[in-house]
């Protein structure tokens, strides 16, 4: 008597497989690999330089457009300089297109940016303000028109030139109304320009404006509480801890005054805690953990 293992087996194909095979055979060479599942290519990434942000986002993707959005004093510039510092430390040549001429070389040097490898382009600050027939100033959104034009032209030139490890567009001080006027086709063109390259295109702004053209969108805002340290000369005579609390709308902060022996520059804060939220990520549509906290310390 033969064992069950010796009996011949027949493979039964599912109806779905049969139907798929039938479609592929009938289409033939006209449409190759029609129903094949394509693995999503995961682009290379570079670290931002802040551990919690790198864990949250996986880093800034190469060959893609990334956005860092946030209001004033939300930590955007610190994150930008951290990313630039990492890139220049890797001996990559970087470019910073500064729409409002707000880049501080001293802060960048303190953050570790190798200024020798950073091309800083200062776009014109001259506001092209025109008065209408009745002599009234137009909507302030037009004030950065010429600067934004320069930003777009310069970015085109830099991406066409190639060879840059990171290109940063700093629109942090550009009014939201002006930034929204940048046509979506421009962002799409930039994205297509960096796709075949290893360049990281980073956009720093007050609100996300590249929409679906961005592979990564990070929203920053200050945390509810932060640690502050005042070291003013007049406060040196005060010893011990003193607290003050302020209610500003929905935001509660507490400020601590403490004695310090290291009197450098009068500093309001020693470090500020920020909150970062991933609005869009190239990895998956909805990352499981979209929020993290990080801190930036003031350089004394």
């Amino acid at each position: 008597m033969s064992s069950p293992a010796a009996l011949p087996t027949m493979s039964v194909r599912s109806p779905v497989s049969n139907r798929r095979a039938h479609i592929e055979s009938s289409l033939g060479e006209r449409l190759s690999s029609t129903l094949l599942f394509r693995e999503r290519t995961i682009p290379l990434t570079v670290p931002i330089g802040i551990t919690s942000l790198d864990v949250l986002t996986g880093g800034l993707p190469r060959g893609a457009l990334s956005e860092i959005a946030g209001a004033i004093s939300s930590g955007r510039t610190g994150v930008m300089l951290s990313a630039l510092s990492g890139a220049t430390c890797r001996q990559e040549v970087c470019a910073l297109v500064d729409a409002s001429d707000s880049f501080d070389p001293a802060s960048a040097a303190t953050a570790g940016v190798n200024l020798e490898r950073l091309l800083w382009v200062q776009c014109s600050q001259t506001a092209n303000v025109k008065r209408n027939a009745v002599g009234m100033k137009p909507y302030p959104g037009f004030a950065f028109g010429s600067a934004l034009e320069q930003v777009l032209k310069v970015t085109d030139l830099l991406l066409q030139s190639g060879g840059f490890g990171m290109v940063v567009l700093d629109l942090g001080d550009v009014p939201v109304e002006s930034a929204r006027r940048v046509p979506l086709t421009s962002w799409f063109r930039f994205r297509r320009a960096v796709e075949p390259t290893a360049t990281v295109l980073l956009l720093v702004e007050q609100e996300p404006c590249a929409k679906t053209c961005a592979s990564l969108v990070l929203q920053l805002q200050p945390e509810a509480s932060f640690v502050s340290n005042t070291a003013s000369i007049s406060d040196l005579v005060q010893l011990g801890l003193q607290t003050k609390s302020y209610n500003v709308g929905h935001l509660n902060q507490q400020a601590y005054l403490s004695r310090t022996n290291a009197v450098g520059h009068a500093a309001l804060v020693r470090e500020i805690h920020f909150r970062a939220e991933v609005l869009r990520s190239w990895t998956r549509r909805k990352p499981p953990s979209a929020v993290t906290n990080f801190e930036l310390r003031a350089a004394l």
Binding site: S82, S107, G172, R297
Partner: peptide
């Protein structure tokens, strides 16, 4: 850099 990210300044010019 990972241990000491710096709070930066934006200059008003």
């Amino acid at each position: 850099i990972n241990n000491h990210p710096v709070l930066a300044l934006r200059i008003i010019r």
